[in-house]
Design a protein around this nucleic acid. Structure first.
Lengths: 242, 242
DNA sequence: CGATCAATTGAGTGTGTTCAATGTCAGTGG
DNA sequence: CCACTGACATTGAACACACTCAATTGATCG
């Protein structure tokens, strides 16, 4: 696996500094000089293959990772030994925030497809914050945003039934531009298993399957294998949980 | 309502700097000089009376608040207009973290009993972080800890039944020293309504009531009105959700 | 082509919800 | 002092939704 300060994105190899062009949230809005500071501590990692582990639960916490391309899931183990999928991460998302303030990672992180990451050693990053107040500000914003997101999912997700949770999931994927939208129809190619999705949504695989079937019978989607087609994506996007 | 840099705790009026003695997390471990910096930006607020609002959802976000004495709840409004209780805060807890990175508060915060708070203007606090790396570090730890806590509640709480959620709630109150423990029996005087507790636990008031009844029939607790007695608190504390 | 794992479908069950009725308590006013 | 009120709490009965367990189909890969 390569380990350079070069990034591989969509077939091309590019420098970390061009992160800026991809609106990678951490770098976004920093001056060139500040950017260089961040570049100096960051390292490109990849390609991770599907199923490959990025870090494991209770490994010593060392770095945050920004997803440059590909997709990743994080999961923990429940009291009774089941795997609980806790999140999906796509381009621009930051892995490892839950470990801040701890010495250990809180999850397993696993690549879902061929994935490139940008590693940010956390101690260096925190030190850098002292010299770049704007960077400190961005990290804090990111943490606050994550808190709000979890809070919303937590509070409102509880009261949604299986179909509503699924709609919410599709909306999230659309927002992260994982669903390729054209006109008002769209296609989604799943990189994760349906079991993972079910777990993420707090459902059993069977319940998710039934929800998919119901949405299909309602004419909203067409579900075959790893691809889901949306006939009227706008109706899904219009669905509101709040 | 008073507004000074004096704190009222347990009937006495004390200076903000003595926060240190109460292991208020933000100040804890700072040098005297650094402490003074924090003291300079902080203001004591109170007493808030039961039911009194501290801040409201969508008010402009200005400050974090550390609970010095008393108790507070935060709540949001669900899609269908119900109040959802999202957290209870006791001595040493910090209110308003979810608003970091936003311009608006994300919750209503309401005092549950006579309550004193220490107000920390957020912009000042963030500026101060640049000069006191240790303070920055503490804030980040605090946010990470909050993330982990929510994560755990979110993931594992979903799979607990009513009784288990209730036990978890008691355990939390014990940990926050709200339940007065003596030998292996203990007493809890509720400052919040049972409806609030139910909402916090993701249950209906009826379901919570039934869970209380079942625990009482099992001889674990005695539930009358606003007080709950624990005959064998250790069995409750031994209950593990993970 | 069979082996294996993921996904789907069916039938029966359980836990919390919903709706409605009753009980409890504090505060108010006659 | 008692009756009235309104908010909160409890209890009962019927229901809904996701769960469990089991069987079947489908997809992928050696």
């Amino acid at each position: 696996m390569a380990s350079t300060n070069q990034l591989h994105v969509a077939g091309a190899t590019v420098n970390c500094a061009t992160c800026k062009d991809q609106s990678c949230f951490i770098q976004d809005g920093l001056t060139d000089e500040q950017l260089q500071g961040v570049s100096q501590i960051s390292t490109s990692r990849g390609p991770y293959q599907p199923g490959e582990t990025i870090f494991q639960i209770e490994d010593p916490f060392k770095s945050l990772y920004v997803v440059q391309s590909g997709a990743t899931k994080i999961e923990t183990v429940s009291p009774d030994g089941c795997n609980l999928v806790d999140g999906f991460y796509f381009r621009g998302d930051v892995l490892g925030l839950e470990a801040i303030g701890s010495t250990l990672y809180q999850h397993d992180a696993v690549a879902l497809e061929e994935t490139w990451l940008c590693e940010l050693p956390y101690e260096h990053l925190e030190s850098l914050c002292t010299f770049i107040p704007r960077l400190q500000h961005k990290i804090l914003i990111m943490l606050g945003r994550k808190l709000r997101h979890m809070n919303k999912m937590f509070l409102h997700g509880r009261y949604l039934n299986a179909e509503e949770r699924l709609m919410l999931f599709f909306r999230m994927l659309c927002h992260k531009q994982v669903i390729r939208k054209k006109a008002n129809s769209a296609t989604l190619t799943l990189t994760m298993s349906k079991g993972d999705i079910a777990s993420y949504l707090g459902l059993r695989a069977e319940s998710l399957s039934r929800a998919l079937t119901r949405l299909q019978k309602a004419g909203l989607i067409h579900n075959h294998g790893k691809t889901i087609e949306f006939h009227d994506i706008d109706r899904i996007l219009a669905f509101s949980c709040d």
